[in-house]
Design a protein around this nucleic acid. Structure first.
Length: 614
DNA sequence: GACGGAAACT
DNA sequence: AGTTTCCGTC
């Protein structure tokens, strides 16, 4: 079920960041840790333990030694290594499990959410929240790329030798401790992948627009077995997860299992009810030989995304762009919520226990929050800038603490007062931005709840159990990229470049298409109209200068978020302003279906357009 | 042990 | 940028 070749881990390209950090091509510590975690032979030294994504360094010095060996730093020791690990706190790649010696926990949400917008939330239930990427193997055909391992960074494909999978492969050969840096590992990889990886062409490109910028078609490509002739597994084909992964590949019966388990850990925490997304590679001509959408797929995909976003506590702002796009609320199973692990044969593997706490429904539905979801804001780690600049009054010791407080403060702020959140809004790189103001997924923070101090934010729609749900590919991109950081509380900024435009949403293609009608028969402003409007605004905004706009919007968005609950459906008919009408509320099934189809159409259109553009 | 500042290194 | 090294503090 797992072979070194196809189970290699692949991490978000930012992990390697070849484009901005030459040095980063080397294997990074966290990758290395994952590597070790995956290998049985090192389980005496380091192993998954406890909560999702949580691992214990059983033999700190040995791990340090291994790390030192890998990096050719014979002087490495746990003290140093741990220092490096601590640097991950601020990056939110890791955090410490307090009270447990040598125990840390991966924050895969970050890894996934931002970098794998396509990752399906699918039957995420049962999948450890912060488990490492599931090496589901290259044979698993799925869409979206279900695992980080599959979703390789474009850069990696193109030039980054630091690809983890290659490392893993090498590791498989017992080279964990060698002194190579990730760079030397590519040869193997490239062999397998073939140089053709780089040439995303035609069909795949069409897809690109839908992908997170960082998820190049290459990545997708790879996700499907890679161009290198690795071959795409037959649709529906599922492979078991890596036993070493805490992230059991879900053997869930039916298609559902497919995604759920293989997806990114982050997404996996989704409450189980969403649709599994199993792509049909051959159904649509549109995407050529690599992928295709069919309405169902699209629908599921979108839903999955919606859910992923939803579950990741993305800020409502993320949904401001296309108010009319209403994605059905993630299904919050009222029944058998505790069955996340539904028959998961693979689950037992070295995967960490699946904390029930993981499920959203657990935390939210059953626990303190009536609201279907919680927003957990992970404020930006106090950067040195901030720390330095703003009088070192931040008593906060660990970044996580500080951030939590900030987040909660922010949220409460917005809900109780009008004062703008104390979010630092500054131009930062995608990645950075992500860290600046991060809306973390619940699950991820649930751990915070457990161990740390996670402040859970209950969105301003508590009562009706509604949630921000309008989401499209476009904003997915946005979410993945920018929205995560500075835009959190501002109204929609200009849609991220490529993928989504009103027209892309296919609104124009459905002239006859009447305005969406809510289940109750409420007439909504035509999508087309809204999008146009939105689009115009966005354009304008863009022109004006995002900076100020951002600030402005931010405040507005914040306000909206606060008001949203109060507004409710009543506004449906009017909606002079698009943003206020965004449908961040739950829709009855029929409405959901409608929304889905709209999304389908939009996506289809988008795909077509993108395709054409390429 | 854990944390995080600071400086140096690659 | 991502550590590595050193170190003071809790």
């Amino acid at each position: 079920m797992k072979t070194p070749g196809d189970t290699g881990f692949a991490f978000p390209d930012w992990a390697y960041k070849p484009e901005s950090s030459p040095g980063s091509r080397q294997i990074q510590l966290w990758c290395f840790i994952l590597e070790l975690l995956r290998k049985e032979e090192y389980h005496e030294v380091i192993a998954w333990q406890g909560d999702y994504g949580e691992f214990v360094i059983k033999d700190p010095e040995e791990v340090a030694r291994l790390w030192g060996a890998r990096k050719c730093k014979p002087q490495m020791n746990y003290d140093k290594l741990s220092r490096a690990l601590r640097y991950y706190y601020n990056k939110r790649i890791l955090h410490k499990t307090k009270g447990k010696r040598f125990t840390y926990k991966f924050n895969f949400n970050k890894l996934v959410l931002v970098n794998y917008p396509f990752i399906d939330m699918g039957s995420g239930r049962g999948v450890p929240q912060s488990a490492p990427p599931v090496p589901s193997g290259g044979n698993h055909f799925r869409f979206p790329p279900s695992t980080p391992s599959d979703v390789l960074s474009p850069s990696e494909d193109l030039r980054s030798p630091g690809m983890f999978s290659s490392v893993a492969r090498r590791m498989g050969r017992g080279s964990v401790s060698d002194c190579s840096d990730g760079t030397s590992t590519n040869s193997e990889l490239e062999e397998g992948v073939g140089g053709d990886d780089r040439g995303g062409v035609g069909p795949e490109r069409a897809f690109r627009g839908l992908l997170h910028p960082r998820l190049s078609h290459d990545s997708l490509f790879r996700a499907y077995g890679g161009p290198g002739g690795l071959g795409r597994p037959p649709p529906g084909h599922r492979v078991h997860g890596d036993p070493m992964s805490p992230f059991p590949v879900s053997p869930l019966p039916g298609p559902g299992g497919l995604l759920g388990s293989t997806l990114s850990p982050a997404l996996s925490m989704t409450p189980g009810s969403h649709l599994p997304y199993t792509p049909s590679p051959s159904l649509s001509p549109m995407l050529g030989s690599h992928f295709s959408f069919n309405p169902d797929d699209m629908k599921r995909y979108l839903q999955a995304h919606h859910q992923s976003v939803y579950n990741y506590h993305l800020s409502p702002r993320a949904f401001f762009h296309y108010p009319n796009i209403v994605v059905p609320q993630p299904h919050r199973p009222s029944a058998a919520p505790d069955k996340p692990m539904t028959a998961h044969p693979a689950a037992h593997h070295h995967a960490p226990p699946m904390p029930h706490s993981h499920s959203l429904h657990h935390h939210q539905g059953e626990e303190q929050h009536p609201s279907p979801f919680k927003f957990k804001l992970q404020p930006p780690p106090l950067g040195r800038k901030q720390r330095d600049g703003s009088a070192s009054s931040t008593g906060g010791s660990s970044s996580s603490l500080g951030s939590s407080y900030a987040a909660s403060g922010l949220l409460s702020n917005s809900s109780s007062s009008v004062g703008p959140p104390k979010i630092k809004v500054e131009p930062v790189s995608d990645i950075e931005s992500d860290e600046e103001v991060e809306v973390t997924d619940i699950s991820e923070e649930d751990e915070l709840l457990d161990n740390d101090e996670g402040d859970v934010f209950t969105p301003p729609h508590p009562t009706n159990g509604t949630a921000p749900t309008a989401i499209t590919n476009g904003n997915l991109g946005a979410i993945a990229e920018d929205d995560l950081d500075e835009d959190v509380f501002k109204t929609p900024a200009a849609p991220p470049m490529g993928p989504l435009t009103p027209s892309l949403l296919g609104l124009k293609s459905e002239p006859g298409q009447g305005p969406p009608i809510s289940p109750g028969g409420t007439l909504c402003i035509p999508l087309k109209l809204r999008f146009k409007r939105r689009w115009s605004e966005d354009q304008k905004m863009e022109a004006n200068g995002e900076r100020e706009e951002a600030e402005d919007k931010k405040v507005r968005a914040e306000k909206e978020v606060v008001e949203e609950p109060a507004t409710k459906e009543s506004e449906n008919g009017e909606g002079p302003r698009s943003s206020p009408s965004l449908s961040l509320r739950a829709l009855p099934p029929p409405a959901q279906r409608r929304a889905s189809s709209e999304l389908q159409r939009a996506t289809a259109q988008l795909s077509l357009e993108n395709h054409g553009a390429c």
